[in-house]
Amino acid sequence: RALGYVREFTRHSSDVLGNLNELRLRGILTDVTLLVGGQPLRAHKAVLIACSGFFYSIFRGRAGVGVDVLSLPGGPEAGGFAPLLDFMYTSRLRLSPATAPAVLAAATYLQMDHVVQACHRFIQASYE
């Protein structure tokens, strides 16, 4: 006989992520601006640090609290950052043969190893 019950809301993580994405789109509680080729992308440090080894190393220390603008490399990687930010907030990674190399380069820079592997698989499959 059960003494207690745990009620597990199976869609809770996606509900939280969806709300965080809406907060991002509305600029609510966003605390960092990523400058990519001069273009600003607003985001929440907590989401960035949870998803990327690069951001973890930037924000984990006390010095990270004061970082409110961060420049990311322009050039061929630049077009890959926005799809990665969308991925962090939605769990959906949009890839096409045209964009995959830039997403791969950006994911490598941000130390998002699983996304890197997914990009490699996508590029490999599109060759075959």
Partner: peptide, 22 residues
């Protein structure tokens, strides 16, 4: 059994939905 905790799955929405920006 004493101390047994049952897990019940809830498939519905877990929190409020922040309204989408117009």
């Amino acid at each position: 059994h004493e101390g047994l905790v049952a897990t019940v799955k809830e498939a519905g929405r877990s929190i409020h939905e922040i309204p989408r920006e117009e």
